[in-house]
């Protein structure tokens, strides 16, 4: 008899690890500007949205943000708080859009809405706590780049979902573990 009681927990932990791995991969990709980020680390959240229980999705989110804080050492600074706020708002928005949109919405739209929400929060925080009112000029750039990266991550997610055997396996395993725990 396979032990399935820990499956949910292990899958959650692994998706968190995948976030950390992808942000390490992203660190290796050269960037045109130091402040731009692609946000590859959000890919597992976008994928998890489709099959994870909300509790587990929130856990993956926390694992990602706290794990990044520990790896980069920024856990005890404003960088962590900004990242937490952006991710929470993004995941909340994506969940809403995904739930309400049903079959009329794809991962591109979901990803885009999350990126949009997150970049709005980031601009608000940057203007309030870092740069001051005059930094409003950065808003169009920041939101614009957020939209571009949101689109890219959304397209990546669609491709990964349609091609990945691993993801299908994980989804199957996760749903079995949910039934077992009933």
């Amino acid at each position: 008899m396979p032990v399935r009681s820990d499956d949910r927990r292990e899958i959650t932990a692994f998706l968190g690890a995948l976030c950390l791995f992808l942000s390490a991969v992203e660190y290796l990709i050269p960037k045109p500007l130091p402040f731009l980020r692609l946000g590859l680390a959000n890919l597992p959240l976008l994928l998890g949205l489709r099959f994870l229980k909300p509790v587990d999705l929130i856990l993956v989110l926390l694992l990602k943000v706290i794990g990044q804080g520990l790896v980069n050492g920024t856990l005890a600074s404003y960088v962590f708080l900004f990242s937490l706020a952006g991710s929470v708002v993004s995941v909340f928005t994506m969940s809403m859009v995904y739930r309400l949109g049903g079959r009329h919405v794809g991962l591109v739209g979901v990803s885009l809405s999350g990126a949009l929400a997150s970049s709005l929060v980031q601009v608000a925080l940057a203007v309030t706590f870092v740069f001051g009112e005059t930094a409003r000029v950065i808003a169009p750039f920041s939101i614009g780049s957020g939209i571009v990266t949101g689109l890219i991550i959304g397209v990546f997610a669609e491709r990964f979902v349609s091609s990945s055997g691993w993801l299908k396996g994980i989804e199957r395993r996760y749903s079995i573990s949910l039934e077992d725990s009933k």
Binding site: H104, V105, L112, I147, L151
Partner: peptide, 22 residues
């Protein structure tokens, strides 16, 4: 590659509107 769905387009237009507003 999946086809884009109706809300994907709407969200895209919405984000263009947000950039313009910004």
């Amino acid at each position: 590659m999946h086809r884009l769905r109706i809300l994907d387009y709407i969200i895209f237009l919405l984000s263009l509107a947000v950039v313009t507003a910004s």
